[in-house]
Amino acid sequence: MALYFIPLAVVILFYINKLTNTLCVQREIPEDKQPKVFRTINVLITILLITSYIEVLFT
């Protein structure tokens, strides 16, 4: 199960970062605030991926 889930999670994180970069460019978010935006989104997506892995693992 982990052999499929971990590469998929990496692809999802990469794509979410790409979308976050597009958001920062379109909304013209200042350079000094962009790391905070990326960190917040990455932490939330990582929590979502971990909880979904645990849910799939135990069901």
Rank of each mutant, 00 (worst) to 15 (best):
V10E: 09
E28I: 03
Y15V: 13
I16A: 12
T22N: 11
R39P: 00
R27P: 00
L19D: 09
T22S: 13
I16L: 06
R39C: 00
I6P: 00
L3V: 04
I16P: 03
I12F: 13
K18M: 11
I45G: 01
C24P: 05
I41C: 05
K33Q: 11
F38A: 06
N17G: 12
K18H: 14
V25A: 07
Y15W: 12
Q26Y: 10
T40R: 08
L3D: 14
T40F: 12
M1P: 05
P7G: 08
P35A: 01
L19R: 15
N42W: 03
I6L: 14
K33I: 04
Q26E: 14
L3G: 02
T20F: 09
K36I: 09
K36C: 00
K18V: 05
A9W: 01
V43G: 01
T20N: 12
A9I: 05
V25M: 09
E31W: 04
L19C: 13
V37D: 03
I41P: 07
F14S: 11
T46G: 14
I41R: 02
V37L: 15
Y4K: 08
I41E: 04
Q26M: 11
L23A: 09
I41Q: 04
V10D: 05
A2S: 07
T40H: 03
T22C: 04
K18G: 03
L13H: 08
L19H: 08
T22I: 12
V11T: 10
V11W: 07
K18C: 07
A9Y: 04
L44S: 14
K33N: 05
V11N: 03
F5E: 09
A9P: 01
I45W: 05
I47R: 01
L23G: 01
F38Y: 15
K18S: 13
T40M: 07
Q26H: 11
P35D: 02
L23I: 13
P7E: 07
V43R: 13
D32P: 00
I41V: 15
T40L: 10
Y15H: 10
V25Y: 06
R27D: 04
Y15T: 12
T40Q: 04
Y4W: 06
V37E: 06
I29E: 03
E31Y: 06
E31D: 11
L44A: 15
C24E: 05
L3Y: 07
I29R: 01
T46W: 03
V43W: 06
Q26T: 10
T46M: 08
R39E: 10
A9D: 07
K36D: 09
M1A: 12
I16H: 02
K18T: 13
K18L: 15
T22L: 13
T20W: 08
F38R: 11
L8W: 07
I12M: 11
I47Y: 04
F38P: 04
